[in-house]
Design a protein around this nucleic acid. Structure first.
Length: 305
RNA sequence: GGGGAGAUACCAGAGCGGUCAAAUGGGGCAGACUGUAAAUCUGUUGGCUAAGCCUUCGGAGGUUCGAAUCCUCCUCUCCCCA
């Protein structure tokens, strides 16, 4: 399935795949309100306080029903910092849950006439031996693609890159390597250089809602006063429809007026920028110019405009 | 015409003799955000030759060691009655 992801393949009857997460990240982000056992996780709804539980089996069932083309295994995303003993214990828990996910996945039939891939997730915090061991375990599952979790949770970038590189050396190169939760435009380019093929992140949309725009010249905080009377296009080089349609001053006004449209326009812009960025990366890889191109991009992307 | 209430920083609004450059909201300015409990959170918001000093609480006087706080007059707002 994924080998055809370039074009001809139809996914869930549409032309774009659906990817669902397992809830593993909620185990991390809802740390205050959940109870974790070997069986799974119990947590209270923030909406009405009702109890809910995630187990590896249940998480597969849910993703089946959603019909995701790529389902994620249930894991525990450890926080940073995380002491070695806990990281080790947690990694083994994630591996045990993975086994249950895989078994349950095999047992349960596809519901909508197309197959669903199940990606396992490497853990191991920032410890090299754990990361290596986890990557080997994950690779041995022989899934259609492999994910790296537990990074971009507050550790220094250098550490994140070091772990990514180490894990990429173990995970098969002929299957997608998916770095979960990353990241900034620079993070993405650096990670591609280390062998990553897939990403997902809240950054382009959440930061857009908060007024941060990514461009190839650098980062704009559109809420800043300096844009108040700048009536130039949102992004002269932008590829999305909003980029030339709206001015910086207008978007700033929408933010100041707390118009919901502000977050929508900014999100469209950032998403288009991310798409352009990885598209360029792909092009440069194919042309053998990725390294130089990345070098030239990284210099600008972090600039504050 | 008679009676009453009040004027505080950009706005609203506490404070009612010293611990007040003045609570708290809002607004302004800036920052954070990385498998989305996130249209969220944080800092800052009189001026300077800044651990100190200077000018602020409608205006002008006064009382006091000391006033945004007490007294007198003035100006202006709002409410009730006629």
């Amino acid at each position: 399935m994924l080998k055809n992801a370039g074009g001809l393949h139809k996914f869930n009857g549409w032309d774009r795949p659906i990817l669902t997460d397992s809830g593993g990240y909620q185990v991390y982000s809802l740390a205050n309100t959940r109870k974790l056992t070997n069986e799974g996780v119990v947590f209270n709804s923030h909406i009405d306080g009702s109890k809910h539980s995630f187990t590896p089996e249940r998480v597969i069932d849910i993703q089946r029903i959603i019909g995701a083309d790529i389902m994620m295994a249930f894991d525990e995303c450890t926080p940073y910092p995380c002491d070695y003993d806990y990281a080790k214990k947690s990694m083994h828990l994630t591996h045990a849950w993975l086994k249950r996910c895989v078994e349950h996945d095999k047992k349960s039939p596809f519901l909508y006439g197309y197959s669903q891939a199940l990606f396992p997730i490497v853990q191991g915090s920032v410890y090299k031996d754990l990361r290596k061991q986890s990557a080997e375990t994950i690779a041995s599952v022989n899934a259609e693609g492999n994910a790296i979790g537990g990074l971009s949770v507050g550790e220094p970038h250098e550490m994140m890159y070091e772990m990514t590189e180490l894990v990429c050396d173990v995970l098969p190169a002929d299957k997608p390597r998916y770095l979960m939760g990353v990241g900034t435009p620079v993070n993405i380019l650096e990670s591609i250089a280390l062998g990553i093929d897939m990403f997902d992140c809240v950054m382009p949309t959440r930061n857009a809602r908060h007024g941060l725009l990514y461009t190839r010249q650098g980062v704009i905080n559109i809420k800043n006063e300096k844009w108040a009377t700048d009536f130039s296009a949102l992004d002269e080089d932008g590829t999305s429809i909003v980029d030339k349609q709206y001015s910086k001053a207008y978007l700033r006004h929408l933010f100041k007026a707390q118009e919901i449209l502000a977050g929508m326009i900014a999100s469209l812009h950032n998403l288009a920028f991310y798409l352009w960025l990885v598209g360029e990366a792909r092009k440069n890889i194919l042309e053998g110019t990725f390294s130089e191109w990345k070098q030239s991009m990284v210099g600008c992307l972090d600039t504050r405009l």
